[in-house]
Amino acid sequence: MSTPAVSYKRHRLPGELIAHAVWLYFRFPLSFRLIEEMLLERGIIVSYETIRLWCLKFGARFARSLRRRPAKRGDIWHLDEVRIVIGGQPHWLWRAVDQDGYVLDEILQTRRNTKAAKRLLRRLLSRQGARPKRMVTDKLRSYGAVRSKLTSSIRHLSHKRLNNRAENSHLPLRKRERIMQKFRSPGGCQRFVSVFSAVRNLFVPAASIDNAVSRHVHRVRAFAQWTNATALTV
């Protein structure tokens, strides 16, 4: 079943402005209050609470639309997990990225064990529709246990220094976590990272793009795709 188009009906301000505010929040390390101030400088009066509601309502819709047009992903998967404390309780964000740094999937879980690793890998195999050429992880034994059960044909490299690609993918989220003064709930964290990663996947050039002209072309195409995803052309 197809996802319905994004609709801005019954909103006082135009869709272009709503989509721009949502883009600012998920693309840059900005708070709702800073975005409120940036819009005010342009003569647009809107409260930070309204911007928060826009991000809640439209962020996930934009992300789903972006995922319907996925770019071709790499065949090397880097898997890693990062500790996030929510309400005083430790959680683990399990993330998989390819060799270019694109986020393939991520799940927030309360465990750091074989069962949690199995859930991530099963989702990856189901959603990607293809098996990787090799899988790179740190020394956590859970990855090896899951790989032997589900993906024994995939070459598995387990070494901390080989997994910098996955470890570096946590840094932008860590920066946002500090600005947001931590996440308030597991559900809120999962919703945020889902949209945050979809927007980063679209706008951040792949690690293999190493010249200014190619980066410029990439961003021009990204803005065109964003315009389609936010239904601003209809």
Rank of each mutant, 00 (worst) to 15 (best):
Phe62His: 02
Asp138Lys: 00
Gly59Val: 00
Lys160Tyr: 10
Gln89Lys: 13
Lys175Val: 10
Asn164Asp: 09
Tyr25Met: 09
Ala63Asn: 08
Asn164Glu: 07
Pro172Ser: 11
Phe32Ser: 12
Glu36Val: 05
Ser7Gln: 14
Ser152Met: 05
Ile154Trp: 07
Ile209Ala: 12
Glu106Asn: 10
Pro90Val: 04
Phe203Gly: 01
Leu39His: 10
Ser65Cys: 07
Ala117Glu: 02
Thr151Arg: 05
Thr230Arg: 05
Leu56His: 11
Ala96Thr: 02
Phe183Glu: 01
Leu121Phe: 04
Gln225Cys: 01
Ala71Lys: 12
Pro132Phe: 00
Gln225Ile: 00
Glu81Ala: 11
Phe28Met: 12
Lys160Trp: 09
Arg184Glu: 12
Pro29Thr: 07
Arg123Lys: 14
Arg184Cys: 04
Ala166Trp: 00
Arg155Trp: 08
Ile51Tyr: 05
Ser148Leu: 08
Arg123Ser: 13
Asn201Cys: 04
Glu167Trp: 06
Met180His: 13
Ser142Ala: 15
Met135His: 04
Ala60Val: 12
His216Met: 11
Ser197Glu: 08
Phe28Pro: 06
Thr50Lys: 07
Ile179Lys: 14
Asn211Ser: 08
Met38Tyr: 10
Arg10Cys: 13
Lys9Ile: 06
Thr3Glu: 08
Phe58Ser: 08
Ile51Ala: 12
Leu79Asn: 02
Asp98Ala: 02
His91Arg: 11
Gly188Gln: 04
Phe196Ser: 01
Arg155Met: 13
Phe192His: 12
Ser185Ile: 02
Ser153Tyr: 11
Phe32Ala: 13
Phe62Glu: 01
Cys55Val: 04
Ala63Lys: 06
Arg95Glu: 02
Phe32Trp: 14
Thr114Asn: 04
Gly74Leu: 01
Ser65Phe: 10
Arg67Asp: 14
Thr230Gln: 08
Ala206Lys: 14
Ser2Met: 11
Thr151Pro: 00
Asn113Phe: 01
Asp98Asn: 03
Gln190Ile: 06
Asp98Cys: 01
Arg174Gln: 15
Asp75Leu: 08
Val220Gln: 06
Ala71His: 11
Glu177Met: 13
Leu124Met: 03
Ser208Cys: 14
Leu17Pro: 06
Ser214Gln: 15
Ile51Val: 08
Leu150Ser: 05
Leu104Ala: 03
Arg52Tyr: 11
Asn211Arg: 10
Ile179Leu: 15
Gln181Asn: 15
Trp226Gln: 09
Pro70Val: 00
Ala21Lys: 09
Arg215Ile: 09
Arg161Ala: 15
Ala60Phe: 03
Arg155Tyr: 07
Leu171Gln: 15
Lys160Pro: 13
Phe62Ile: 14
Ser7His: 11
Ala117Pro: 00
Ala96Ile: 01
Arg52Cys: 14
Ser148Gln: 14
Gln225Arg: 07
His91Asp: 03
Ile35Val: 07
Phe62Arg: 01
Ser148Cys: 02
Ala212Gln: 13
Met180Asn: 12
Met180Ala: 14
Arg178Pro: 00
Gln128Gly: 03
Tyr25Lys: 07
Arg112Ser: 03
Met38Trp: 10
Leu24Asp: 07
Leu157Asp: 13
Asn168Arg: 15
Gly188Tyr: 00
Ile76Ala: 04
Pro4Met: 06
Arg219Glu: 11
Pro70Ala: 05
Ala212Asp: 12
Asp80Trp: 06
Leu202Lys: 07
Pro172Gly: 05
Asn168Pro: 09
Gly59Asp: 03
Lys118Ala: 13
Trp94Asp: 09
